[in-house]
Simulated assay, not measured.
Amino acid sequence: MVLVVSLVALVAVPIFWYGREAGEQPASVPEPAQTVPTRSTATPPTTPSATAPSVKTRAADLPTVAAEAQPLELIVGKAQLRMPVVPTGVAADGQMELPPNPARIGWYRFGPGPASTTGSVVLGGHLDSREYGVGPLARLSRTRPGDPIELRLSDGRTLQYRTEAVRDVDKQTLALAVVFDRSGLRRLQIVTCGGEYLPDRGGYQENLVVTAVPVE
């Protein structure tokens, strides 16, 4: 799966997306996102489910990654989802880099870190893949507002979040600037692919976006 995103200003907005419910996939940053439809089986499509965001910027324009605690594991109890988090950046083709294995989720390391006092920590991953099959994010759609989410960090801490919104967004209308916000209130944004899978139209047509706020 791959996320499709147009990075208008990587320094201001990160780059990638995922899907939704029972099938998920990544989305793009500055443009629309995609979501994954609720599906119960693990029959992966014959082509990638999502695409990464395209970024028009130079490596020198990327912000410096702060030397702080990094996310190691995402835990969403209601979705029976527990998966390792790996730092990701920008791929050679300008899209947001995503872990190839849908059993892992990427943290956009050029955006705010979990210890930041402002902005959105963005996690994104593939819903499925031809090589590995369907991943844990296929269960992310089970999440509902109010559900707890945990993010375990490299310094031993575990940050607690409360789900604020679960949305399926057409990838042509996804507000990437909002998802990858660097200066607003602290948020956790989890994105994957969703919606109907149409091979002749580029794969999944939506993104599943789960937004959570810190529990003080």
Rank of each mutant, 00 (worst) to 15 (best):
K56L: 10
T57E: 01
R58N: 12
A60W: 08
A60G: 05
A60S: 12
L62P: 07
P63E: 05
P63F: 13
T64M: 11
V65D: 10
A66H: 13
A67W: 14
A67N: 14
E68H: 02
E68P: 09
P71G: 05
L72P: 06
L72N: 06
L72A: 10
L72V: 14
E73G: 01
I75Q: 09
I75F: 05
V76L: 11
G77H: 08
G77Y: 05
K78W: 05
Q80P: 08
L81C: 07
R82F: 00
M83F: 05
M83S: 06
P84W: 06
V85I: 15
V86I: 07
V86M: 03
V86H: 02
P87A: 06
T88I: 13
T88Q: 15
G89C: 05
G89E: 07
G89L: 11
A91I: 08
A91Y: 01
A91F: 00
A91T: 11
A91L: 07
A91V: 10
A92L: 09
A92C: 00
A92V: 05
D93N: 15
D93S: 13
D93I: 11
G94K: 03
G94C: 04
Q95P: 09
Q95A: 10
P99D: 05
P99Q: 06
N101M: 05
P102A: 01
P102V: 01
P102H: 03
I105Y: 11
G106K: 08
W107P: 10
F110T: 07
F110L: 06
G111H: 14
G113H: 01
G113S: 10
G113W: 08
P114H: 09
P114G: 11
S116V: 04
T117R: 15
T118E: 13
G119W: 15
S120E: 12
V121P: 01
V122W: 07
G125T: 09
D128W: 05
D128P: 09
S129E: 15
S129N: 15
E131K: 15
E131T: 15
E131H: 15
G133E: 02
L137P: 03
A138W: 00
A138N: 05
A138S: 02
R139C: 07
